[in-house]
Design a protein around this nucleic acid. Structure first.
Lengths: 229, 229
DNA sequence: TGAACATTTCGATCATGATCGAAGCGTTAC
DNA sequence: GTAACGCTTCGATCATGATCGAAATGTTCA
């Protein structure tokens, strides 16, 4: 009579440690970081971080690449990222009256990457603007670009053709944990984030996974997307 | 510099206890159960179960209704169910060569409810059949019934009109943790499960959330849906 | 009203897992 | 070849959380 409950508990146990949760959350920006960087993130010694990382890698939540003496760790799969996002969405809801809601870092709320696409107020604003302009249909059920949306993104220089054999969906609804509303994920969402980085509309910060919206970005998101941020 | 990581860890910690994981997994069938029933599920004394349930209810993972001396607990929201499903999907993947893959109970694998819709081989077979007959488009991106699909389900006696003010999506892709493939969720998926229960095609078991496919069900799924199970 | 049943609360106990110091291993540059 | 850096492994320690016995509370029925 084997159910999935023991495996569920084990998986949750891996995430339940605050140090490991910090690591996983940090790596939600899709980047890889070294073991010693992640030790700082987790607030523990390198040896403790090493032990945590080994457990996460063993269980295929993280994957590791070695470059010289350095180990770079990143989230193993988009499925893991999606799972974590789902947990964060529930985690951000705290109905206990005796506790204030989690005070979310303002930078994280304003703009961050969620694995490979935009999230926070920025992600939601861009998504909403595209919907308002009938470039995008997106709801909990799913999402699709309209013809005008394809043209719009094409004009921005985004190539929407799927890489060969890609099973990656073009538009996926992703429930934003800080806004508790949908933002655009999938290939289209990732392409927009890539573009924004290339155009220097947003900049990654050296620490954390919030991103900075540049002055040029504010203009571009307003003028090109019609997004008020 | 507050991130969501502490809340994520706390939430995961609630799920990480094997007894609590068993409770949550059991309640994934959408039904409510009493505290003493859930104590048996968790394999602990009633007082320990009471303490676990209080913690889950406090954190709004479960909600409780009192009827006389009995307390009935159920999953608090579909969002919680969705989160758990996402975790189960990752939990069912164990890449460690030193460990056999989780041996999933055969009844659970064959047919079970995933909150309010069909899952396991049955759920996937019904979904695949509907896709084969062009009644349903469903992929990771999302899903929709075709015109023939609407007619098909209408002929079966399913009313697809949304209840007033329902924000419930009609078709949602749900990645089945035992099959690692998509089955149909959303209002349509739930309606099919309801119908199957009403028609006695499937029967809930007194223990657990696997469902039994009746002989009539086998015929109906084959003849009406074209699903081989 | 008392008994039976369901459930909750409290406190002491114990097991588990995270921690860091110490030591060792691997890589690279000089 | 050696030193510096990055990372891992091991063992002892300690804090935390799950556990159950005991007791109490709430509901229903005869």
């Amino acid at each position: 009579m084997q159910t999935i409950a023991p495996e569920l508990a084990e998986l949750a146990g891996l995430i339940a440690d605050p140090g490991r949760a910090s690591i996983l959350s940090r790596l939600m920006d899709g980047r890889a970081q070294t073991a010693s960087e992640l030790a700082v993130v987790a607030g523990v010694t390198p040896q403790t971080a090493s032990w945590h990382l080994a457990r996460l890698a063993e269980r295929a939540l993280l994957k590791v690449e070695r470059r010289g003496p350095r180990r770079f760790y990143r989230l193993a799969t988009p499925l893991v990222a999606q799972m974590l996002e789902g947990m964060m969405t529930v985690a951000a809801i705290d109905p206990r009256p005796s506790r204030p809601p989690p005070r979310i870092d303002a930078d994280m709320r304003r703009a961050r990457t969620c694995y490979d696409h935009l999230a926070g107020e920025l992600g939601v604003a861009v998504t909403d603007a595209m919907r308002r302009h009938d470039h995008l249909n997106l709801d909990q059920e799913g999402g699709e670009l309209t013809a005008s949306g394809r043209a719009f993104l094409g004009d921005l220089g985004i190539d929407l053709h799927a890489p060969a054999r890609s099973r990656r969906v073009l538009c996926r609804p992703c429930l934003d944990w800080s806004e508790q509303r949908l933002h655009l994920a999938g290939r289209a969402g990732a392409a927009i984030a890539d573009l924004a980085l290339q155009r220097d509309w947003i900049r990654r910060r050296p620490q954390g996974r919030s991103v900075e919206i540049t002055a040029a970005g504010l203009v571009a998101f307003r003028d090109s997307f019609g997004a008020r941020i």
